[in-house]
């Protein structure tokens, strides 16, 4: 009986395991291997690779542009993270408490999440931030706030913050929905009991609501962290200039190393690719993710509250 059970496990699990090994583990190992070689072209065969040891890693950390990209990523993670989590928790709490046309507000805040990011970025860069007829300009002008209306959002000076603002705007909806759902699950008795005992709204939020949705916050925080480490699309589409230091992130820098930074496909001379270094960036980002996950597991409380 036991033997046949084992065989059944094997039969049912093997397709998934094989698929995992072939489609996931092999590329990962290959990337790690690639990062120790000098590789000129992403599709060049492995017998043209030249072993260089740790050179790609050493070279990478001496590159100023990579350090700039890393700093940008940290800023997105910290500044963007603070904004997204505070605002979405606040809105979730307010909407959960009940608000005039609450459903409508919830849907409106969630709406940007449904739209494909490329379309969103185009709307932000070409319309919202536009300095001739843009949404922000029009609104600020109507309100008589001329200094705010004159902000050159997409100029090099403000481009990073403009990108971050737009990204956060689109990230709040998803978080909000998760927190609202989590808050709904908390039994009303708990709130009522606290209220009868004379707890203030603030105390109820920090002592009851927040601890009971901590698990969800942890999940969302994990997603946020991974999203920031792999931050690519927004950086890429927000600025079409290759290696634009104002918005570059490590993932975008990796792309430049893998596929080159020619300003146009029509250009004869393109700057060379450095696939080995691209692979090294991939490995570094992977390690950063692992470390970030470990830290997240450390800082979030282990104890579970029973509801």
């Amino acid at each position: 009986m036991k033997k046949s059970l084992h065989r059944m496990y094997l039969a049912f699990l093997s397709p998934v395991v094989i698929a995992f090994l072939v489609a996931y583990l092999y590329p990962v190992l290959r990337t790690v291997q690639m990062s120790f070689y000098e590789v000129s072209d992403i599709s060049s065969s492995s017998d043209t690779w030249k072993f260089v040891g740790l050179f790609n890693y050493l070279d990478l950390f001496s590159r100023q542009l990579f350090l700039v990209s890393f700093r940008n990523m940290l800023l997105i993670f910290l500044a963007g993270g603070a904004a997204v989590f505070l605002i979405s928790l606040f809105f979730a709490w307010v909407l959960h408490k009940g608000m005039f046309m609450g459903e409508l507000w919830r849907n409106l805040i969630y709406l940007p999440t449904v739209i494909t990011p490329v379309a969103m970025i185009t709307v932000w860069t070409q319309y919202v931030y536009n300095n001739r007829f843009g949404l922000l300009k029009t609104i600020f002008e109507t309100l008589g706030l001329d200094t705010l209306a004159a902000i050159p959002w997409t100029s090099t000076q403000y481009a990073f913050w403009a990108m971050l603002l737009a990204y956060c705007f689109c990230s709040i909806g998803g978080n909000l929905l998760v927190y609202m759902a989590a808050m709904k699950k908390i039994p009303d008795d708990l709130f009522e009991a606290a209220f009868i005992d004379g707890a203030t709204e603030g105390k109820i939020f920090f002592r009851i609501t927040l601890p009971l949705i901590a698990d969800n916050i942890k999940t969302q925080f994990t997603f946020w962290t991974i999203g920031c480490i792999g931050f690519f699309l927004w950086s890429r589409v927000f600025s079409v200039v290759p290696s634009d230091p104002t918005t570059i992130t490590p993932a975008s820098y990796m792309y430049d190393q893998l596929f080159g930074t020619s300003i146009s496909s029509n250009a004869v001379a393109t700057s060379g690719t450095n696939v080995g270094m691209g692979a090294a960036i991939g490995v570094v980002l992977c390690l950063v993710t692992v470390i970030a996950m470990a830290v997240i597991n450390l800082i979030f409380p282990k104890e579970k509250y029973e509801m």
């Binding site: 590159r63 100023q64 542009l65 700039v68 090099t156 200039v241 290759p242 290696s243 634009d244 230091p245 104002t246 930074t261 300003i263 146009s264 029509n266 250009a267 004869v268 001379a269 700057s271």
Partner: peptide, 20 residues
């Protein structure tokens, strides 16, 4: 070439940005 053959990380990250 299109960018007059002036290209490097320094060009992208500093020269082009400052010129802009």
């Amino acid at each position: 070439s299109l960018n007059c053959d002036l290209s490097s990380e320094f060009v992208s990250a500093v020269f082009t940005l400052e010129m802009n």
